[in-house]
């Protein structure tokens, strides 16, 4: 008899029960410079860093229900940094009082043999992309401004093609479940970026065509 499939229940309990509060938006490349300038002024007094990451999305298809998705990510600019394995739960839009999208989130640092390990476990790579951009920090808030490029040949991160002429902007905070006050901080921060970019909670399930 075949072993029961891996449980698709989200991991809960303990210190790993963290939620990601997320706001998203996009900005055209033309307005990118002014947005970066604004962010440099608003965020913590650190040198803003650029990054280039390669993300692989793995699926584990069970017998029924939705497939289990894991995201493996590595930094192309820092080849020695550990890989990052991430589980993201179903996003909760919540009521109007909560300004940000909330989803369960499990972050694990992993060694470089992660893809092989996932393959051995039965995961299959669904798609991959290369993302590069800037990362800012204000307190616990992380602001990532990045563009997304399609990988044309699987596994070849040199040969990529930009998906669009705009940059994705994500404002996120990792916090334990139930700390909705962070969304207030995010709201006030998003307000300060208002004319340049409108950060909103975007429910991906409604974006599907």
């Amino acid at each position: 008899m075949e072993a029961p499939p891996v449980t698709v229940m989200p991991v809960t309990g303990g210190t790993i029960n963290m939620m990601e509060y997320l706001l998203q938006g996009s900005v055209l490349d033309l307005a990118l410079e002014s947005l970066l300038h604004r962010l440099r002024g608003l965020c913590d007094n650190m040198e803003p860093e650029t990054f280039t990451d390669h993300e692989l999305v793995y699926l584990l298809k069970g017998q029924q229900g939705n497939p289990f998705i894991l995201r493996a990510r590595r930094a192309l600019s820092h080849p020695n940094a550990p890989w990052h394995l991430r589980y993201l739960g179903q996003p909760e839009v919540g009521d109007k009082n909560r300004y940000a999208l909330v989803r369960n989130c499990v972050d694990v640092a992993a060694s470089h043999s992660l893809p092989e390990f996932l393959n051995e476990m039965g995961f299959r790579m669904d798609h991959e992309f290369v993302t590069s951009g800037h990362i800012f920090r204000k307190g616990a808030m992380k602001v990532v401004v990045c563009n997304v490029s399609r990988v044309q040949l699987p596994g070849n991160t040199e040969n990529t093609e930009r998906m669009s002429n705009s940059h994705l902007v994500e404002l996120s905070v990792l916090a334990p479940a139930g700390q909705d006050t962070v969304s207030e901080d995010m709201r006030s921060f998003a307000e300060q970026l208002k004319p340049l970019i409108h950060l909103e909670k975007i429910d991906p399930s409604k974006q599907r065509h």
Partner: peptide, 19 residues
């Protein structure tokens, strides 16, 4: 700053502890 960008903020060396 964390690398890759999706990783949480924190001690860089502590992140190496697992791998």
């Amino acid at each position: 700053m964390p690398h890759p960008a999706s990783a949480p903020f924190g001690h860089k060396r502590l992140r190496l502890a697992g791998p």
